[in-house]
Nucleic acid binder design. Structure first.
Lengths: 223, 223
DNA sequence: CACGGTATCGACACGGTGTCGACTCGGTCA
DNA sequence: TGACCGAGTCGACACCGTGTCGATACCGTG
């Protein structure tokens, strides 16, 4: 269930040699069609034909439609984790900037795969594997944020208050829902151009009770 | 599409006399079964048999499975609106208490119908009518919160900052997602006993930059 | 060239949805 | 009272998407 193996267990049977491009074609077709309509409106036949194979052959590569989405989500999550790891750790020098970069990174990465993100939200509620993967991801980000908040409190930059973990969960949940609405163009929604600003400001107030925390106070205030 | 008519348009055909109890039986069966499994795992046949009728007869009362959920959601939303209207307006005298009561009211009302709430989240992503109803509801709450925040700012209790509407959307979205996770027992999640406290504290910090706003400062601080 | 695994698909069984036409049954009116 | 009517009911059907099975074609290798 861990994210490490990624190929051997998940999806197709043993397999190895050429059929790899077919697998890629299925994934590409899925991401393309998800840009046009919801996953529930995409049949396995659509995916198969899009990849130039018949429906039974589809099952040679993936056990179900959901498994395709799971593979897609796995890719996006890896990408997000990598992008997040590349954010420079300016938490001590300029905390406002640090949090902003993290939020902007999420926005950028998931926004670049909005169709997959939205489809996962749809499937998560009925598919245990997608739910498990998403839970794992949320848990790891929650732990990172929890540790960062506790660090800021020990450093004296952030005041004591809510248990750091509860705060981290609430803020991460807010981001998830607000970014989702933004991608889906739900109403009501925050304009996509402002969404990072808005989330950033709420995070700062929730963690520091000010929008200009830290030694420098150099961070840009809310809008 | 407004919530007013509620009966004449939505769901069944003209109908009037006795079949009302059948309609009620279908709704009751739906809410009962939703307590056991997801909507996608409930067939129209299940609903029909639960109500003591055959599948074709089901269609005499509701045009689809989703329409049943829509009716259920409509009831819950009315209940929430009524409960919210009954919250005493202590915004001027004790803002902390006011916000807490609003959040607690949501938690109580939707928690009492957690199964319906969760099912709606599932269907909202594929059903335009449920999405529209939910959007309408979120929009009305957003407007109420926006007005309240603007009032607090004019009164001088809350500092200027983010556009009030953006803030209202972010906070409402956070509540939606966090309460959902709590009802669904997702992980990570905030313990159901603490969830109102956590949300309340984030709201206060986001709106006032303090957990003890207002003239009295009498509100209970975070945990 | 035969063998074995990869890759492919036609055909089937299954389950859920939605519709149609026929039937019952209680009330109404000539 | 008996023809009528519309609400309510359901059996049977057509349709569609899923998942499986068995047969086959297509390699690369000994």
């Amino acid at each position: 269930m861990a994210s490490a193996p990624a190929r051997s267990t998940r999806g197709r049977r043993p397999a190895r040699p050429s059929g790899d491009d077919r697998e890629g074609a299925i994934l590409a077709t899925a991401e393309r069609l998800l840009g046009e309509r919801a996953l529930s409106a995409i049949s396995i036949d659509d995916l198969a034909r899009g990849a130039g194979i018949s429906r039974p052959t589809f099952y040679f590569y993936f056990p179900s439609k959901d498994a395709v989405l799971l593979a897609l989500l796995d890719r996006v999550v890896r990408e997000a984790d990598a992008a997040l790891a590349a954010v420079p750790d300016t938490l001590a020098a300029d905390p406002s900037r640090y949090w902003r970069e993290c939020i902007a990174t999420f926005h950028r990465t998931f926004g670049a795969h909005a169709a997959v993100t939205l489809a996962c939200a749809e499937v998560r509620l009925t598919n245990a594997e997608v739910l498990a993967l998403w839970s794992r991801v949320m848990e790891s980000w929650t732990q990172a944020v929890t540790a960062a908040i506790e660090g800021e409190r020990e450093r004296g930059t952030a005041p004591a208050g809510l248990p750091a973990r509860d705060l981290a969960i609430a803020l991460n949940s807010m981001n998830e829902r607000v970014l989702y609405s933004s991608f889906a163009h739900d109403v009501p929604t925050v304009d996509e151009r402002d969404v990072v600003d808005v989330l950033h400001t709420v995070w700062l107030n929730a963690i520091y009770q000010t929008t200009t925390p830290g030694p420098t106070g150099s961070s840009r205030p809310a809008r």
